[in-house]
Design a protein around this nucleic acid. Structure first.
Lengths: 149, 149
DNA sequence: TTAGGTGCAAACTTTTTGCCTCCGA
DNA sequence: TCGGAGGCAAAAAGTTTGCACCTAA
């Protein structure tokens, strides 16, 4: 997807090789928007059935090292990979596991503070915030008294 | 730790039984501050060597359902369990996996916004924010041009 | 007494490693 | 050509399940 030559250059710059698998995995991450390694593998295998899940893991590691993709742990299970292009914040409910996507605009304040005070560059493009969704808040009252005592 | 009777009451209220294992696991989570199931198990086994890792998993699930503990995925590996009492925000570096703890004060703005606009109750007591730590920011420049093109 | 809870072993899922072959530069 | 990369199989890490026995209520 447009960037083929760029991936090749980036790899060569570090003495690494361009391979069809690496392009396919990168394309899959771009196409799928936060997908698990297994989903990425399935997607790649539609075009190249011989590609192994091991290669997908190794390539995702590599691409993450090159800062071309990243991963976030949304719910319990497998991590979720995406590119910088896919911008939003995830609100993950502790209790029911529900994930809501919201625009990253609300974070500009926080980003500035963390940068100024800790030198930490917050990744607003793919952030997971944990808490409790509106539905589950209503169920929380019963247990609250235990913590309060 | 003080709350023994409270745990028993909470369990009985739901037709569940109080057991030494449940108290030990809850105490371990309180003592250890964000520990993995395996670490919790080891801690419990110092006092009660026969307690099985299976029981730890089952009990953590149970206690989370009772809203007495919670878990967060910090880095790659195992989840990290803690209680509400342990208040801080984790800054997790995407690149090197480093985790910095900062006070949750910076989040008051964000908490209000998310509550007002989405009904989402952000859990400030044990939040993981992903991004890049100050050291790794310096290494990022080399790859940046690829994304920019 | 008796149903819920535990321990143990085995299965399962997800990820990593070793090793040999293959192929990109 | 030749060392990095991929495929395959096995191992490791993390978690869940089945079942018989035990114990809190």
């Amino acid at each position: 997807m447009v960037v083929d030559a760029s991936l090749r250059r980036t790899l060569h710059k570090r003495g690494m090789r361009m391979t069809p698998q690496r392009q396919l995995v990168l394309d899959a991450v771009r196409d799928l928007h936060h997908a698990t390694p297994e989903q990425i593998c399935e997607h790649v295998q539609r075009v190249a059935p011989a590609v192994n899940i091991t290669t997908v893991y190794r390539t995702l590691d590599l691409l993450e090292g090159l800062d071309l993709v990243r991963h976030t742990h949304l719910g319990h299970g497998a991590p979720s990979y995406s590119t910088h292009a896919h911008e939003h914040v995830h609100l993950v409910c502790h209790r029911c596991g529900d994930v809501t996507e919201v625009p990253p605009a609300a974070l500009t304040n926080l980003t500035e503070q963390l940068g100024a005070r800790f030198g930490f560059v917050l990744d607003c493009s793919h952030l997971a915030l944990s808490g409790r969704c509106s539905r589950c808040v209503e169920h929380a009252e019963t247990a609250a008294e235990v913590n309060g005592s």
